[in-house]
Every structure is written in C-alpha cells, then in structure tokens.
Write a protein that binds this DNA or RNA. Structure first.
Lengths: 345, 345
DNA sequence: TTGAAAGCGCTAACAA
DNA sequence: TTGTTAGCGCTTTCAA
C-alpha cells in the first residue's frame, strides 16, 4: 500500500502537463501571461494530481503568512471565545487563519506561546497580555511581527491597540448605584485579577472617592472550583461585612450570577436588600431572575477590529493607532434604591 | 531605520560563531555530539542574534508540523469553546498549536477551511463535520493528514473518532420523564440542527415509541436573533399545542434557559405545570431557578481525547479507533411529575 | 510565451 | 568533531 503523502507537488504537475515548474507557477499567479492552450493542459494536470499549494514553501520564499496568532487568558472563557470569533471573521477576507492559545494569566505560558508563534512565522499576533511587562511584545514588533493589544490600553506603546475604557465601566456602575442612593458599595473580585478587572475596580473606587465614599473590597479565590461557586460562597462575607454593603459590583456576569444565587439561598432579596451589578452583558444576563443590571462591551467587535488593525499593518501607509470602545451601562432589575434610603438623607 | 525582519537565521549564527550551519544545527538537535567549547560559542551566538528557528523551513524539510486544525460549528459557542480548550491542552505536551476555525454549519465554509488547513500542512485535523458527506475527510486522510471525528460517531469510517452517545442522552431524558408519569412530551429543536441534536431528538423519539408514545416536535428558527429569545418565543406554540405537553426536552441548556424564562413570563410553573430538561450541563444550569435537570457530557475531555488520538496517529503501531463517552442524566428541580398524574393512571 | 536557475532556512547523509 | 553538499516546494528574475 503506497501512501501518497500530501497532494502532488508543482513539479509533478509540470511533468504531467509537459511544461516547466515556472509555467505552472505562472498559471497559478498570473494566468493571463500563459497561452490559453498551455494553461488548459496545466489546469488539467493540477486537477489530475490533486495539487495543493505548499504554504510553508511559499512562506520560505518570503510570501506573507496566512497565520495570525491570538493569545488570550482562556479561549474557553465566553468573553474571549467571542473575541476570537471576531478575530476569525475579521481575518476571513484576507484568507487568514486563527492560531489561538490560552495563557491562564501565566507569564511563562504567554512567553512560550509567543515563542512558538514566532517560530511559525505568523503574520501577526493579537494579544490580551497576561504579564505587565510589554517588552517582549515590543521585541516581537521590532522583529517585524505586528502586535495588536487587545482589551488593553495602548498607553505610550508603539503598537496598535483595541481597548475598552474599563475604568469608565466601573465608574458607570458606581455612579448608577450612588445615584440610586447607595453609600456602602462593595466590589467582588478575584484574588488575582486580569488587568481589565483591576481597572474596573479602580474605576469604581475612583467614582466612590469622588463622592466621598470608600470601597469595600471583597476578593474570592476563583480557581477551585469555579467562579460561580466562589461568588455564591462570598455571600457570607458580604453579609458579615460591617458596615454591610447595600450594593455589590461584580467583576463579571458569571460572578453576579453566582452571587444572585447565593443571596437567594440566604434569603436576601435583590434589589430590595442588596443591589447587584454584573459586567459583560452575557446573553443570559437579561434572562436571570431578576434580570441583571450590567455593563456591556462589544466583545465580538473587539476581536474583529483587532484583526482589521493587524491586517492593516501590512499596508503601505500604516500608522499605529488605538481604537477605543466605550462600555455601556445596561440597567435592568437587579439594582434599585437601598432599603433604608430615608435614614441616609 | 533598518527594520531587522525576523530574528537572525542559522547562517548568521554560524557566521558569528565561526562555524558551519550544520554545527549550529547539531548544537540545536544533538548537542552531545558537539565539543563543549564549540557548543558554547554557538550558544553565545544564538543569543547574540536572537535566533528563532524557522518553522516553515523545518516543515519543508519534512519534519512534522506543529499545527493542528480544529473545525467546529462556531468557536464562540460555549460547548465548542470548551472542546477547543480541551484540544489545546491535549496538544500542549507535543508542543503543538491550535488552528481553529468555524463553519457555521455551512459545508462550503467547511470545505474552504479544510483546504486552507491542508495548504498549511497541518499535522492533523479534528473536525465536527458540518456536512453529511464524509468523503472529503477520507480524501484528506488518504493524503496523509490524520482526521479525528469529533462529537460524531465513527460508523464504518476508517478514521479515529470521539463520540458521545447522543441517542442515549435523548433516551435518558425521555425515560426520566416517562418514569415521572409524563405522556405528552415535546422536543424543542432548531429549524436546522447539527447532527448531534438530530441524534438526541431521535433518541427521545425512540424512547417514547418504546413506551407507545408519540413525540411532539417543535422547531424554532435559531439564528435571528438568538436561541435564547427563540426558545422564549416558542412558549406560545408549546402552550397552544394540542394535546398540550407536560414536559419539554430542549436541544441544549441555552434553549432551556430561554424556555424557562418564557414560561415564567407566561405564568406557567416549572415543574408543577411543565417539566423542562436541558442538554450540556453548562455551569449555569445548576444556578438557574429552578435548577435545571439536564444531560451532561464531558466537553473538555472530548477535545482532549481527540487531541490525544490525533497525536497518536503519528506513532508506529497506531490503529484507528473510537472513544465513546456516555452522557449522564443530571436530575435537578426543573422536572417533576405532571400535574394531573392521577387521571393518567 | 516558456524555461533555466538561484535561493528562501533548514536537516541529514556523508566526507574529511 | 566539524564541514560540505543536496534538496524539501516554491517564486522570481532573466534569458531564450
């Protein structure tokens, strides 16, 4: 049993068509320049051997790669999954493929991933950085591999970036609650948070400070077993806090869902006793009981725009730039005035 | 501004270290064979020029590719996102990277994706087929590209496969309801469903038939705007059906969530008036109100095992095989006996 | 309009 | 222990 590995090469096509490899190459890349008759013979031969162009060989010759890397926290996370889908679709017009990897927020995994992507000769990399040190990214960029920052502010870096104003998102949530009359507000976060969550927390803190209030900072260990359960288990600490908060801003919708569930189990009414705000506006948010007030951001578009920026890096007059999206407060039924608003007046 | 594109090549390293390229190659692949002193000089040079191996060149020389393709319905779908994460992790020990694409259940997109992956010279492809025709997959396999079927039974195909017994999953759901006393049972599916959902529906139908019952088949248009809303909107049709069902098996948890919400809005109690079963056991399932009875499957492991099978294809004594997972009924509070069970006796 | 030839970066067989 | 050499499949001058 002869295992014909891969489709035939250009040489085989040339042999069958009775022409040289360069003529086959011409048929493929500038058909107009080849005599109609020859072209026909070559096309027949291409079908006959089931010719498939060899990407690596093309790349070795210096043609642009069709591979684009995506480096995120976790491609199973619904947020990054949507972002990746956005990247995939943004890449499609250029015929590029998505090489996706997860860092689990570990700088060592990130570094290794970047290394592998560089070896593959990717056309560029979209990354939601796990580490705080941007120098590996600048190094990649200096070596000619375009890097686009995702869900991350550009600051003074000489790179393209797609960012959401996370601090504003936090501020919107806090101001909504302050406007409702809340004075004791908690932020439910993880023991170790990715940068966007840190910025949300600081946004909340800043808004509270501007109103002369202090943030109650509650941290849960996320990993074992799950954010959902960790958030539900945080209820005790929230209720025990003194002064007890009348509102909780959660790091994301998943945490909010867990918290909602834990509060319900504890017999605490939402929003009558405690208001809850999520972040992300996952599809389920509006179907929860009560429908969740949350801050939305354009997940899919984030990825799509990142892909477009990346593809643009190859074009002549490209200059690095940052595209900034604004988060959006979506008020539903999980927030309301605090119970004893009168006595706060 | 001289843009030094990519890191230095092996030749540059060789030049700096004052040795030949093959010595550099030796340092990299069989360091033991190189004199300690020479090796040192080469290693220094490698650092000096920031050498990064060129993957495509290696591949052109015939070394195995580090790229593995994953072709699914939609990488933003939580189920496939988890599967992809499983593949990624299953690939990691071999240092392979995940090239992920979505078909949106369209055979033309699938074909194009497979084509691109073949061009890239991937080491293999894990695929949840969109089309019903397996011949393109067999063709790929014949060309030396291992193909592993995902979430798809192997049947008589000469390929590796990782499958879940979807018909059994449907049967478990149906038998649970029949055991509770239900006689009028509906399946809530999409207008066009992927194969696994079709098999679930047939499993339900078969279990009902075995009990002398007939399936009430309800289809909703999924795409615009969302499954969640489509399911919620299906409530009218479910309530209007005659005879009106006392239980609904949903194509997945998302649909169940939408349905739960629609039922609640319509003032129908779950499970007192209607029982609801989901499928997938998403993390949110146990946090819904009421906690959702559903059928679970090992999403992450599916991907992980698929990756392992794929990697095994490269090894000497490999024979194609199928790994089959059993779905699992998870009984929670969204199912119970029908209201008028007495009159059914 | 077609073909010959060089070379991208690397590996491996072989020679020195 | 190290170097020379051929060649993987392709693109791209340049010459015929």
């Amino acid at each position: 049993m002869t295992e014909r590995v891969r489709g035939g090469s250009m040489r085989e096509v040339a042999r069958i068509a009775g022409v040289s490899v360069s003529t086959v190459a011409n048929v493929l890349s500038r058909p107009a320049i080849v005599a109609a008759d020859t072209r026909r013979r070559v096309e027949l031969a291409i079908d006959a051997v089931g010719y498939v162009p060899n990407g690596p060989a093309r790349q070795l010759r210096g043609l642009p790669s069709l591979l684009v890397g995506s480096v995120t926290l976790d491609l199973a996370n619904p947020f990054y999954a949507e972002v990746n889908r956005g990247i995939e679709d943004g890449l499609a017009p250029a015929g590029c493929l998505l090489l996706a990897g997860s860092t689990d927020l570990r700088p060592d995994k990130e570094e290794q991933l970047l290394h592998l992507l560089e070896q593959q000769g990717v056309r560029g990399i979209v990354i939601a950085p796990a580490g705080t040190d941007a120098s590996p990214l600048l190094r990649l960029n200096a070596r000619g591999i375009p890097v686009v920052l995702l869900d991350h502010p550009r600051e003074r870096l000489d790179l393209c970036a797609v960012a959401v104003d996370d601090a504003l998102g936090g501020r919107l949530a806090a101001e909504h609650l302050i406007g409702l009359g809340h004075r004791r507000i908690a932020f439910l976060g993880g023991a170790v948070d990715p940068a966007p969550v840190l910025r949300r927390r600081e946004g909340v803190r800043a808004a509270l400070a501007a109103a002369g209030l202090e943030l109650l900072d509650i941290r849960v260990r996320i990993h074992p077993p799950s954010l959902l359960d960790a958030a539900a288990a945080a209820v005790d600490r929230i209720l025990a806090a003194s002064p007890r908060p009348t509102a909780v801003v959660c790091l994301n919708d998943t945490a909010a869902l867990g918290l909602l569930d834990g509060l319900q189990a504890a017999g605490v009414r939402v929003p009558a006793d405690i208001s809850v705000i999520g972040y992300d506006d996952l599809p389920i948010a509006r179907r929860l009981a009560p429908p969740l007030t949350t801050v939305s951001q354009p997940n899919y578009e984030l990825g799509q725009v990142a892909a477009e920026l990346l593809l643009d890096e190859g074009r002549p007059g490209h200059t690095h730039r940052e595209i900034r999206f604004a988060p959006n407060l979506v008020v539903r039924a999980s927030t309301g005035p605090p119970a004893h608003i009168d006595e706060l007046r």
